[in-house]
Amino acid sequence: MPVESDLVTDSSESIPESGETPTRAIVPDPQFVQEFTRSQRQIYLYILSQVPSPVDADEILQETNLVIWRKVDRFQLGTNFLAWAYQIAGLEVLKFRERRHRDRLRFSEEFIERVADEVEGVSDQLEARRLAMLACIEKLRPADRELIEERYSTGENGLSVARKKGRPANSVYQSLGRIRRALLECITRRLAAEGST
């Protein structure tokens, strides 16, 4: 058998009559698949808070997904999918750190633990924050909105936007910082207002 994994059933157990190919697939419970699909963003955010680079975070997400998928049969429906997924993602972050032990830019384990706790604690507010953020983006001045949209278009970063606009990188960094802070404040205000009505 090409795949050696604990999930593969021992093929000698069940050789069917010749000619009839067995259909042997794990078809996960649809509820599982739905949970899985829906929690992608949250898992990504969980990971991103623990590694400094979005590209790395993405890689870890992919690996986490594979593990989740491999362990599909270990998950009990009705229990907290996200908590389970966070656990797996956490382990993958640690593995990734080990692989990159020579990387000078990495967070300490203590920091990662602290941040992971924090993210888990606010996990249920994340969706509300995201919706608030969308509304806040609408409220930005057009030029600011344009800048932030450009910065977060695929493949861009502050530097590439600065080059495109012919602006000094530092001034773009400053603008981006100002806009992100404005968004954060707007989100906080908005949520406070919603909470009081």
Partner: peptide, 13 residues
Amino acid sequence: YVEYMHLHGTLIW
């Protein structure tokens, strides 16, 4: 920190 990263990550995502 977490709220900031959440904003950043959501924009990316």
